[in-house]
Design a protein around this nucleic acid. Structure first.
Lengths: 144, 144
DNA sequence: AATTATCACTTTACTACTCAAATGATAATA
DNA sequence: TATTATCATTTGAGTAGTAAAGTGATAATT
């Protein structure tokens, strides 16, 4: 019989949770005709616009190639614009993109929160946030 | 300016962490010629063998179609066997699969643990495990 | 002025997943 | 015995990601 470490048990739970909740979120966002990844991208753009593609790619942990395709799709649906300045493309939301994000925003945040609100007290959520933040910052460093 | 909820901040950190650490893990496991998903599948088989495909699919949160393809690849590399009994296929590790898993097991668990060992005390890890377990069990219920 | 370098972005080839329709082995029914 | 039903698994079509090679606009060098 193999012996687990505490860390490996945490890792497994987190992987399962993010996988499951990501699937549920994709299902939930269908009413807005968005995927979880698209929502994430639109939100980051709304916070940091105008933002370059490579900066955006880093924020949403996707490769350059990946963000290029995603933005092509979002541009086709007229949710964003790319304004080229020298060799850099600056991304902004269109009014249509802004409206779509605003429509989905509250519902999606309530949806995300529900996973924690249903199981943890406010104090426990604060603790969880502190711990996971430390862990995530470390893995972000290691990714470079 | 949009207002975040505590839950949405936790959600984002978790998504980022699992994405980043999954990428790092795939890189790490190249030395064993495995992906993170394959390691997970082999480990579940070793614990529950003989196990049917549909049970295995549930354990690793992948669809029936997905597990079918994964197992086809693992079978081609002779790491697993599928023994058909009536309409069900029971999956087991081959000696080769067992050996590959044993080779990778300790290293991979140490790798997974390192994300937490580098940032959290043992006590903090226990707390994190308790909290995330409650959250994950809830999302597992909701997935059904 | 022509060539070369730089660098953000795009594209190609590949992998791996999803959903849903098809397959195939057996059981139940007519 | 032929037909139909059942149900785990497979397959086809589509989507989304990766790594790495290609593109194109500008800057630097000769």
């Amino acid at each position: 019989m193999k012996k687990n470490t505490l860390g490996s048990l945490i890792w497994l739970r987190m992987m399962r949770f993010t996988h499951e909740s990501n699937n549920l979120s994709n299902e939930f966002l269908k009413q807005f005709d968005l995927t979880t990844a698209q929502f994430d991208v639109l939100l980051q753009i709304s916070i940091f616009e105008p933002i370059t593609q490579s900066e955006l790619a880093k924020k949403v942990t996707v490769t350059q190639g990946g963000i290029s395709r995603m933005l092509t799709r979002l541009e086709q649906e007229q949710l964003i614009v790319r304004h080229q300045d020298w060799k850099t493309k600056f991304i902004s939301l269109t009014p249509k993109g802004n409206e779509k994000l605003n429509n989905a925003f509250e519902a999606q945040l309530a949806f995300q929160s529900s996973f924690f609100d249903e199981t943890l007290t406010k104090e426990e959520q604060k603790t969880l946030y502190k711990l996971i933040s430390r862990v995530q910052k470390n893995s972000e460093q290691r990714s470079k």
